[in-house]
């Protein structure tokens, strides 16, 4: 079979196309964070999750270590059960503190993990015992007004 200039251009086209797909997956989609390695699943109960959504990042010290995979409402405890999948390269101690935080004033909400000092590490399927709910603006204002009122007494 003869090699032609046409084959070269088609090859180049396919190469560029595949490169574009790779850029989308790696640089834009951040595929390497949680699909390439193994994960372990944790759950946590939150009194109020605010605007947290499925697929929101789970960060520790600002680094993305996993993602929220599921949010359910528990009818036993009447609070939110958040399931998150963490990269198994990042093990956390048993007494890790999970809180729902906001990126910037109006940014999206994420789960922040603050490692504790326990010797034992969290395993797949474990439950995070220490959680802190999302800040809800109305509650903040309410608490602030209440404090002011009690101060002036």
């Amino acid at each position: 079979m003869q090699r032609t200039a046409l084959d070269f251009w088609v090859g180049l086209f396919v190469l560029i196309g595949i490169a574009a797909t790779m850029i989308l997956s790696m640089k834009v989609g951040n595929l390497n964070v949680y699909n390439t390695s193994q994960n372990y699943v944790l759950t946590g109960h939150f009194e109020n999750i605010g605007g947290l959504k499925v697929r929101a990042p789970v960060k520790s010290a600002g680094v993305v270590v996993g993602r929220v995979t599921d949010i359910q409402f528990s009818t036993q405890t009447y609070d939110a059960v958040v399931t998150m999948s963490l990269d198994s390269r990042f093990p956390f101690p048993k007494d890790t503190f999970a809180s729902i935080l906001t990126a910037g004033l109006l940014g999206e909400q994420y789960i922040g993990l603050a490692a504790g000092g326990d010797e034992a590490m969290l395993k797949d399927g474990d439950k995070l015992m220490k959680t802190n709910s999302a800040m809800v603006l109305e509650e903040l204002i309410g608490r602030f007004l209440f404090d002011k009122a009690s101060q002036s007494d």
């Binding site: 797909t21 989308l24 997956s25 640089k27 834009v28 989609g29 951040n30 964070v33 699909n35 697929r55």
Partner: peptide
Amino acid sequence: YWSQMQSAVDFRFDILNGF
């Protein structure tokens, strides 16, 4: 620019579905 993009765009839901 890049990091906000990376944390918001999901491979399976966004890129794969677009594909």
